[in-house]
Amino acid sequence: MFEARLTEGSLLKKIIEAIKDLVQEANVDCSEEGLTMQAMDASHVSLCSLNMRHGGFDHYRCDRSISLGLNLANLGKILKCAGNDDVVTLKAEDEPDTLTLMFESPNQERISDFELKLMDIETEHLGIPNEEYKCTISMPSGEFQRIVRDLAVIGETCIITCTKEGVKFSVSGDLGNGNVTVRQSSAADGDEKDQVKIQMEEPVTLNFALRYLGFFTKATPLGSTVKLHMSPDVPIVVEYPIDGIGSISYFLAPKIDE
């Protein structure tokens, strides 16, 4: 028996919205520790990793580890039937063919349940090395979204350069080129969540496809902060912490000069 209850059901809506354009089908693995999902996009250029700890749920029970093969677009359609303030409960048997989703309105006046058919999905699980990154940038997620959206109008590839002073996002295309530099905030600058913080061992410059960075920014509603982890010649990690429950991390392979 698997049962997981989230008072803030809208969180689940936001998570699926953040993944479904990148990944069409995925196995969500449920265990005593919580929910995890690892999936690559169809062209194997990026990888999305979701982690939701059991302690982040209001109720969590998982007697036996199970894997839920989900069509994320279809799950998104069902989650659209939930109100934004609804409590969402997920339920499945030990050898499930379906996932039951129950939505309860805050005053308990409306209770609905839906069953989503599960799929057998063959996936390749990748071992992600535990890397110490040379640069870690923490910045407002809305700022990152704006930069990616703005630069995507000009070109396809973004050069991200991280130095101690700041992070520079550069793009060039047929119409011209552009740069946006965000500088490290000084300690006195406003709210913690609005700050740009850079931890750097050595400067890093890497090229990335803006199209994929754009997919990642669908996670912006999940939190005020995004963290970028970079080292030379390895995939960037774009990590969105989800307050109190876990995180969603996107890995994107760089573009490399031939």
Binding site: H44, H125, L126, A253
Partner: peptide
């Protein structure tokens, strides 16, 4: 020109 690398060239299959 830059070439898009695949995720599979960085992370090994489990």
């Amino acid at each position: 020109a830059t070439k898009q690398k695949s995720m599979l060239s960085f992370f090994n299959k489990k």
